[in-house]
Design a protein around this nucleic acid. Structure first.
Lengths: 114, 114
DNA sequence: CTTGTATTAAACCGATAGGTTATCAACCAT
DNA sequence: ATGGTTGATAACCTATCGGTTTAATACAAG
């Protein structure tokens, strides 16, 4: 699992099983068994996925007797949004007017050199 | 490189070098050599990173004589935003009013079972 | 204290990430 | 033709991923 937080977040999200787990947790906390149930893999495998999500701080876990309920944590998603935000002018069609204007400015600033 | 597009996107972004390359491309197209210059690794390594970015469709490449100028492509970032959007109620503090209301609704819908 | 349940840990395995160096291919300029 | 430059590819290496199976742990209930 990558060292820097943003890489850890992206890494954790680069797996469909882990994203499915997050989607499930978006509807409320859940136990490991509960989270594993929809997936065709061993409980141990899911446990590992949870470890990845936890180390990326995308989830936290409580204790209730022998259960370790998982809870979705918002902070890394906020950071992800902030990163994405820094590219917004490139993908947000609603910013087309300003964006394409800035783009052409940049392109023209480069062209003279060629 | 993962098969499904969203995983491929997250995977490609889970590396600081690749994110740095994208950040550079946000300021305009660039050649491979230009992209490699700030990084302490071989050109071949950067070429591999570009291959990953390209296979995730985060960049496209043109041809100009012996140069293969790289260009940032917005679509996967849009998809990423759409994914993030589906979790917005969990991380966007500006939606606190509605979100926490919905949250408590969900929690209360679960509680009776315990 | 034994048994059942929930979860983690350990050891293992095949595949692949991410780097290296060396070679190859395409193109431009003499 | 012969180089120089740009870039991709191949072969290789080590570390890690994502799964397995098999224990080990923690707790609750008889």
């Amino acid at each position: 699992m990558p060292a820097d937080p943003l890489s850890a977040t992206f890494f954790a999200l680069a797996d469909p099983t882990r994203r499915a787990i997050l989607a499930r947790l978006a509807q409320g906390d859940a136990s490991v068994k509960e989270l594993a149930q929809p997936h065709e893999m061993s409980l141990a495998a899911v446990s590992k996925h949870l470890k990845v999500l936890e180390s990326a701080k995308l989830i936290s876990r409580g204790r209730e007797a022998q259960w370790r309920p998982c809870h979705l944590e918002p902070e890394p998603l906020r950071d992800l949004n902030a990163w994405l935000e820094s590219f917004r002018q490139f993908w947000d069609r609603n910013l087309d007017g300003l964006a394409t204007y800035l783009q052409t400015l940049q392109q023209n600033a480069k062209k003279p050199g060629e």
